[in-house]
Amino acid sequence: MAQREVIVGSRVGLHARPAALFVKTVSAQPVKMTIRKGDGAPVDARSILRVLALGAKHGDTVVLEADGEGAEEALDAVATVVAEDHDDPA
């Protein structure tokens, strides 16, 4: 099982646009992926409702996990989305 620990970069947390972008990116990957916050239970990363319900805020650490061929690349792609701030109003 490959995994990544990422700090949420979005100012509003994994909510609204960042959450939608996250699920969109996960859904485009060839492997199944889970996300958990801290020591919480892992949830299906393709589920926008589960991702929202994590309540992951700016600066929280989340753990992404995936298995199988292409897992490393998939995790890298998704981790980048989590770490970026998409709500820069400028």
Partner: peptide, 11 residues
């Protein structure tokens, strides 16, 4: 799109 994503939610 965000609302559509909820309708597609597998959970």
């Amino acid at each position: 799109e965000a609302t559509a994503m909820i309708a597609r939610d597998p959970s």
